[in-house]
């Protein structure tokens, strides 16, 4: 009761609202500043070929990050999402020669299934998602390693079913990135216009109140994890296409940048605050940062440190302390 009282008081005074607004706008400011700085260093940074290169790297990170956004909005997290995308590349590599284009549909459905499964365990057993998904991370990684005998599988036969993802251009821009951006926009529009569009946010803000108003928080949670799984599979399609192969750890290195994209975009790790458009901004920041760091001469070895610092720093800025009771 007391823990709730004080932040309320500051809310009443309204002195935090300017700060809140600034923080909300911060990701976009950071993105613009980054682009400006990098453009100053590399005058042709915003040139067509460079932008194309940037966007090619965007799709898998953005897809993973959008998926994760669904879960983070509910206040949970799915640590297994990158591993699931690796698994999906292995499945694609194994199945494309056998069943061709059907695999392109089947694999995302399977990762949808793994996501739903995670959601069911979290919702039914009522255990924290970070532990369940940590376990799931081991499980699916083990499955991927076993299926692939721990080696990269080249895709040659049946590649044309996914080749278009990398090769196709619309107005000179890679179709994979355009699709990913379109999916982010569709999700954002859905959140805005559906009569129950704010349900995921409500889940993160006030799960009990949502349930006590007759909404099935169990189904909502399962659906959020399902979406995360589905998007991990889509990211896997892009990865497999661009790498001409499936590999049991192919997507693993995207875990940190994708989580970093979600949080630096302004999605609160405590849930309820944010959305796919924020994630899009976050993913763009990460992509520009990658290129920008090397442009200003920072060795690639420092990339991990940057991601780590971004995750911690962005969480500090976006976390809603007034909602926190005991933090474990």
């Amino acid at each position: 009761m007391t823990a709730q009282t004080e932040p309320m008081a500051t809310r009443w005074l309204g002195d935090s609202s300017l700060k809140d607004r600034l923080i909300a706008a911060l990701p976009l400011i950071v993105l613009i500043a980054l682009v400006a700085v990098v453009s100053a260093q590399q005058p042709n940074f915003l040139g067509m070929s460079n932008v194309r290169g940037l966007l090619e790297g965007l799709a898998p990170i953005l897809l993973l990050a959008i998926g994760q956004t669904f879960v983070i909005l509910t206040g949970g997290i799915d640590l297994s999402f990158a591993v699931v995308s690796s698994l999906s590349t292995v499945l694609l590599a194994l199945w494309l020669p056998e069943i061709g284009p059907v695999a392109v549909v089947l694999v995302p459905l399977i990762t949808l299934g793994t996501g739903l499964l995670t959601g069911i365990v979290v919702a039914v057993a009522q255990v924290p998602s970070f532990i369940v998904t940590l376990g799931a991370m081991g499980l699916w990684s083990g499955v991927a390693l076993t299926l692939s005998s721990a080696s990269t599988i080249r895709i040659s036969e049946g590649y044309q079913a996914i080749g278009w993802i990398t090769d196709m251009r619309i107005a000179g821009l890679p179709v994979s990135a355009l699709i990913a951006i379109a999916l982010a926009v569709i999700a954002a529009v859905a959140f805005k216009t559906l009569s129950r569009g704010r349900t995921l946010h409500a889940m993160g803000l006030a799960e009990k109140a949502l349930l006590m108003s007759g909404n099935s928080t169990r189904m909502i949670r399962i659906a959020a994890f399902g979406m995360c799984g589905l998007f991990s599979g889509l990211a896997g399609l892009v990865l497999a296409s661009s790498q001409y192969s499936g590999g049991p750890t192919l997507g693993d290195t995207l875990m940190l940048p994708a989580i970093a994209a979600v949080v630096i975009g302004g999605n609160a790790i405590t849930g309820g605050v944010g959305g796919p458009m924020k994630t899009l901004v976050g993913a763009l920041i990460i992509i520009v940062l990658r290129v920008g760091l090397s442009a200003i001469g920072v060795p690639a070895a420092y990339e991990q440190i940057v991601y780590g610092a971004i995750i911690v720093g962005a969480v500090v800025l976006t976390i809603d302390r007034s909602r926190l009771g005991i933090v474990k």
Binding site: A301, Y302, I305, I311, V315, V327, K328
Partner: peptide
């Protein structure tokens, strides 16, 4: 800073790997 421990350590773990890489 009241950040959940798994989140903090996810970040610092990456920093640890980064420092080691350097």
């Amino acid at each position: 800073l009241k950040i959940p421990s798994f989140m903090v350590t996810l970040g610092t773990g990456a920093i640890g790997i980064g420092i080691a890489t350097v």
